[in-house]
C-alpha cells in the first residue's frame, strides 16, 4: 500500500515535471512584452548608487526589502518566544580553551573588517547589508561555539531593540519621505545615496542580530504549558 502510494506520487511528480518542461520550452522561445533591465539602466542615474542590484533592492523595489526585513524580524520574534531560559546563551557552553581563545582574537576583528567592507562595497559591486549581516552573525556563532560570553543574548530590552533597529530606521526613512516628499519610500533628489547607506548600516546590525538569535534560540525547559481547555 505504502509502496503503491509512493509510485503514484512519483508518477504525479513526473507528470508535473513534463508539463513544466513543455511550458518552460514554450515560454523560452516565445516571450512577449518589453525588457525591464533596460528601464533599470535608464533609471540608474537617479538611483543614488552604482550597482544595479542594490538600486533595485533599496530604491526601485525598496518596499519588498522593507517587508523582507519584516519577515526576518517575525522569524526572530517567533524564535525567541520559544526560549524559556533567562539567557539565550547557555553558560554550560562556555569553555576556556587557550587555542580557541587565541584564534578568535585573530579571527573576530578580521570578520568585523570583512563585514564593514561588504556594506561599503554594496554601493558599486556585489555586497550589501545581508551579506555583511551574515558575516557578522557568523562571527557571533563562532564566538558562541568558541565559548566567548555574550551578555546581550538575553531576551531582554537590548536584544529586542537590536532586532528591530534596522527595520525601525528603514521605516522612519519611509515615513519621513512620505510626509515631506512624494510617496512612501520616495527619497528626495540627491539624498538617495546617504539614505541608502544609513539604511544599509543599521540593517546589517539587525540582520546579524536576527540570524544570531535564531541560531541560539533553541534551548527549552521541560515544563510544557497547558493549552486552553486542556486542563
Amino acid at each position: 500500500m505504502k509502496c503503491r502510494g509512493l509510485v503514484s506520487l512519483l508518477l504525479l511528480c513526473a507528470a508535473l515535471g513534463w508539463v513544466l518542461v513543455y511550458s518552460l520550452w514554450s515560454i523560452a522561445f516565445n516571450p512577449v512584452g518589453g525588457s525591464l533591465p533596460e528601464q533599470v539602466s535608464k533609471a540608474m542615474a537617479d538611483s543614488g548608487v552604482d550597482h544595479p542590484i542594490t538600486a533595485v533592492l533599496l530604491n526601485f523595489r525598496s518596499y519588498d526589502t522593507l517587508l523582507e526585513i519584516g519577515v526576518l524580524v517575525i522569524a526572530a520574534i517567533a524564535g525567541i518566544s520559544m526560549a524559556r531560559l533567562p539567557s539565550l546563551e547557555d553558560p554550560a557552553f562556555r569553555t576556556h580553551d587557550a587555542l580557541l581563545d587565541a584564534l578568535q582574537r585573530w579571527f573576530v576583528p578580521l570578520m568585523w573588517l570583512v563585514a564593514g567592507y561588504l556594506v561599503w562595497a554594496g554601493a558599486h559591486q556585489p555586497g550589501g547589508a545581508f551579506q555583511a549581516g551574515a558575516v557578522l552573525a557568523a562571527t557571533g556563532v563562532l564566538m558562541r561555539l568558541g565559548g566567548m560570553p555574550m551578555g546581550f543574548l538575553q531576551p531582554g530590552y537590548l536584544l529586542r531593540a537590536g532586532l528591530i533597529l534596522g527595520f525601525a530606521v528603514f521605516l522612519l526613512v519611509a515615513l519621513v519621505t512620505a510626509v515631506v516628499g512624494d510617496a512612501f519610500l520616495a527619497y528626495p533628489a540627491g539624498t538617495a545615496k546617504y539614505l541608502i547607506l544609513l539604511i544599509e548600516l543599521f540593517l546589517t546590525l539587525s540582520i546579524a542580530m536576527v540570524l544570531l538569535s535564531l541560531f541560539v534560540a533553541a534551548p527549552v525547559n521541560d515544563a510544557p504549558e497547558s493549552q486552553e481547555g486542556h486542563q
Partner: peptide
Amino acid sequence: LFNLYVGLELISLSAVGLVALGGAADA
C-alpha cells in the same frame, strides 16, 4: 506579483508564530 509573494510570507510566518506562541508540543 512578487510583492504579493513577500506579503503572503509576512502573513504566513506571523500566523505560524502566533499559533506556536507558548510552544506546547501540540501547538
